[in-house]
Design a protein around this nucleic acid. Structure first.
Lengths: 231, 231
DNA sequence: CGGTGCCTTGATTTTCATCAACACCTGTGG
DNA sequence: CCACAGGTGTTGATGAAAATCAAGGCACCG
């Protein structure tokens, strides 16, 4: 296996304060892997053996209910740690992680977690920060699900994806990975039918454009209004 | 101010691996405070100056939407850290914490957070564990809100409270702090009317008993069935 | 060129929020 | 001691939002 380049990590928050040598050490213990779209990095309920860092692509974190319904809990952008619940003292993964688009990730055995925290300055702090952000996002989602109507939730979900992963095109902001109506339904706790109706309506009004599995937000400000952020 | 007794902390996870002297150090820097029922420990959006440990009572973590609706995000049981988001790199509190029952908590200035992590063995690990558990709970709530009908959500909320704070009585498990129908509505994203109807129905069926602001679960197994955990 | 996955749209039904009215308990102050 | 106010809880009637049921179309892949 060829050596990984150190520049992969130096810019990223969890490792930004480390020396070249330290980054080298960390990289030498990592296993890089490519995940084609749809491939699972790990599955809910399986023994939690590794934690990961996403270098490129997008990871979708999914939970399945006993009844077989799926809920998309989170999207992980490049540069973030994921699958770190094991590092928090769990012995199985609490959710499934699948590649939402072709992805590249590093993985480390979970036994290194303690080392990373004690040896590398800033790693703990930055990890707390990441988790804090994630907790915040969950809190927001709970609040949304509990208080807002479907239309607002869908608008918020689109905006979140556009912000996290959007690419500017001449038509507007295109979401950076393939999304189906069913995906959006699983993010917002509704059905693909309702999502389809909403997107059709928004397309008629010129707020979004959508091709098969690709969505472009053409009028973000109007979506913001629909999402209820305004008062 | 009289010195706090060291036995307050020795049993608790974040401090369990520390020596007597270390516990003493930590206690000497803490400010203890009593919060009567309904009092706020801190408020959403205010500068995050301290983090806390609940010694006794119950803390309710509440978020308010721009429209003024409230959502109860979490209940904190004794022995847990709370208000630690500032320690994760935020400068304001993301939610409000109020005492759900008369409570006693210690508080430390947030600048000590770094010290605690570097100086005290096990503190970081245990904190990650706590946060991991909390993330897990949020994930569960999101899943519930997204997929389950109101009746199931209310059943789950009651069970969660009974598990976290229940006291065994001869009638059944009594929830350890006062709860109104409106509170349950704010936990489950419904209205107090719907909650009232459900509780009335369950009371007729002998699943719960309720007096003003006190709820006792008399047939937990039947609630579990209603919550949909069974298959 | 057939099949599967993705998307759309209409009709019907269900769940739950909303509107409305009232009853009860508890503590407070006259 | 009693009246009464405010917080709490109940229950019925109505309506709207969104799920479910149903059917079909289109595009991409092998």
């Amino acid at each position: 296996m060829s050596k990984l380049d150190e520049s992969l990590l130096t810019g990223l928050p969890p490792f930004s304060r480390l020396s070249r040598g330290e980054v080298r050490e960390i990289l030498d213990q990592a296993t890089p892997r490519r995940y084609p779209e749809g491939a699972a990095v790990f599955r809910e309920g399986t023994p939690a053996e590794r934690f990961h860092l996403l270098l490129d692509g997008f990871i979708r974190v999914v939970r399945t209910t006993p009844e077989g319904e799926q809920v998309i809990a989170l999207h992980i952008p490049p540069g973030q740690l994921f699958g770190i619940a094991p590092a928090m003292g769990r012995d199985t993964y609490p959710a499934t992680a699948v590649a939402a688009a072709e992805s590249l990730a590093l993985g480390w055995p979970v036994r290194l977690w303690g080392d990373f925290n004690t040896r590398y300055d800033g790693f703990t702090t930055e990890t707390f920060r990441t988790i804090g952000a994630r907790l915040g996002e969950f809190q927001t989602r709970v609040t949304e699900l509990a208080t807002q109507a479907v239309e607002r939730r869908v608008a918020s979900a689109l905006l979140r994806m556009a912000n996290q992963s959007g690419r500017a095109t001449e038509a507007g902001i295109e979401i950076g990975f393939p999304v189906t109506r069913a995906d959006i339904a699983e993010m917002t706790g509704t059905t693909l039918h309702t999502v389809s109706r909403l997107l059709s309506a928004w397309e008629r009004e010129g707020i979004v454009q959508s091709a098969r599995r690709r969505i472009t937000v053409t009028a973000p400000h109007r979506l913001v209004v629909l999402s209820g952020a305004a008062t």
